[in-house]
Amino acid sequence: MKVVFHYVLWGVWALAISLQSCDSHKPHPPVTNEAGLYLRLDHRYDSSALELNRAWLPTLLNQVEINHCQYYLSGFALQRTDSSWLEFPNAVFYADLERQTQSRWRLAPSVPAGTYTALRFRVGLDSLLNHSDPASWPPSHPLSLLSSAHMHWNWNSGYIFFKMEGQYQRPSMPVNGGFSYHLGGDEMLRTVILPFSPLALEGPETDLSVHLQMRGFFDGSHTHYITDSSSFSHSSLGDRVASKLAYNLASAFVWKGRVNPL
């Protein structure tokens, strides 16, 4: 009996020691999809997925190659059937196409079950966000200079809302020209409303799909012909190029519907 007691005693000790965490490499909990409302943004050129750097994209008047594209969306809201808006005031989406041309982003941790008829957002940032101090945001926030290093102009001048840079060519040109469009400033803020057939949203995970059609940026309602003098804009006051492109951009978002979660 005494021998058995001793075995039990040592066994309990060994178990206790094995449970004590001498090892700092504890396994992480398994990764699971978090519940929430997700926005899926695909960047397209006509029916094809957009490719940076190598694809010459025929616009109406030029051929263009996009090297960089980054932008902010904010002011998200879903419209209820009674026309009121369910707002997601703190949500800021930042896209950097060099990192990924297809984004899945959690817009909100949950959305009340109900029927909705439109998605609204702004291309850019409202005045409060636009003139916030980028140094005040935590490093992981999209408005931190560390998350989006090239998207803030300078002291007191605010963020760049949309940036596209690349090269263009026409048959008569001996070498590629460059283009650089930086849209920003409070007057460049554009609101996009994408209406859709009444859509019942329920369940823990919902994905809404939107495409950004890059052809529309150049060949929208205001066709943009790139020349030496119209190949760049940094949204100076009264800049007609920036105004035209901002208008085109707001019309280039296309509602695609609810899709199955990834």
């Binding site: 101090d133 140094a135 945001w137 490093p139 931190s144 560390l146």
Partner: peptide, 10 residues
């Protein structure tokens, strides 16, 4: 100090 435009980084 704040105001010089340095990002907030721990």
């Amino acid at each position: 100090p704040q105001g010089l435009g340095f990002p907030n980084l721990p």
